[in-house]
Simulated scan of single mutants.
Amino acid sequence: MPVATMPPHRRVPELSVRPGGLRRVFHRLLVLVAAVAVGAGALAAPAYAEPSVDEIEAAIDKQWEQLEPTIEQYNKVRAQRKVNIKKAADLQKKITPLALQSELAMNRVADLVSRYYITGPSQEIGALLVNGKPTELGEQMLMLDRLAAQERSEVADVLAVRKKYDDQKKKLDDLIEAQAKQEADLAAKKKQIDAEIKRLQASLPKTTVKVTNCPTINGVVSEAARVAIRTACAQVGDPYVWGATGPNSFDCSGLTQYAYKAAGVSLTHFTGAQWNEGRAIPRSEARPGDLVFFFSDLHHVGLYLGNGMMVHAPRAGKPVNVSSISHMPVAGFRRPS
């Protein structure tokens, strides 16, 4: 029986790996495995839904709560600046006649000085001494005393007028200096607010904002309130623009100022001032036409319509609208008069 012979052993060719080559191959395998694992994980990760319009609006409302106090502070400074400008104009009206009065007084003193310079008090005294009559000398000396007193009085008048003028001028100069600083502060705040509003508006949803009109109003407290409500409701749909007081755009205190101005009631374009310009009303006694304020720092205001509703200028991106007062913390009610 022939003996089976084993096939000749085949030698497996060796891999020719240069120093460090094996390490590079192994590293590439690790990278490939990791990539596959990451890809599988990504496929397994849950998908998150895009935020709804309501969620975006709520987020912007929250940001606006932080921004609106700065806007109302701007309104406050601007209102104060208007008052200061009026004060400066009033002071200037007082200073103009003071300057004329001072000039006339100085002219009278100049006349006295010229008279003494020409005649000379020493010549008058010499003439009196040569005369030698005591009674006449006494009378003449008394006349000279009176002239001296008159001169002192003239000088005193000039000094008093000049001091009054200088005091008034100093007040005016201080006022102008304060106004210059306020102007600089306003410019910086305006730049900051504009940038923040642009950022907020860029995130606003590209949808049409639903506008709710004013309902039928009953129980209006006064004719002025009736006019204010009618005026404010006529602005529903107008855009919000911070610092605006109408007639085509408004911020919150600008709308309430505009509405009551139509009724002959003057309000300052600043929520804090409007709070002090009305009579406090308990919530249980609030009537249509009252102003309703929000937040502890009073940075938002609306015109109350009754039944828990108001008309107000909400914020950038939302026009003048009617909404519930329950969406924000109510600080209190005030009744303009």
Rank of each mutant, 00 (worst) to 15 (best):
V221I: 03
S222R: 03
A224Q: 11
A224N: 11
V227Y: 09
I229G: 15
T231G: 06
A232L: 07
Q235D: 07
Q235M: 14
Q235H: 04
V236C: 12
V236I: 15
G237T: 14
D238R: 01
Y240L: 03
W242G: 02
T245W: 00
D251I: 10
C252K: 00
S253D: 06
S253N: 03
G254Q: 07
L255H: 01
L255E: 00
T256H: 03
Q257L: 12
Y258K: 14
A259L: 09
A259K: 03
K261Q: 13
A262N: 15
A262I: 07
A263Q: 09
A263H: 10
V265R: 06
T268G: 09
T268A: 13
H269N: 06
F270P: 05
F270M: 02
T271F: 04
G272I: 06
A273Y: 06
A273P: 00
I281M: 08
S284H: 11
S284T: 14
E285P: 11
P288T: 14
G289Q: 07
V292K: 01
F294Y: 08
S296I: 15
S296H: 12
S296F: 14
D297Y: 06
G302R: 00
L303S: 05
L305G: 15
N307I: 06
N307P: 12
N307E: 08
G308R: 00
M310G: 08
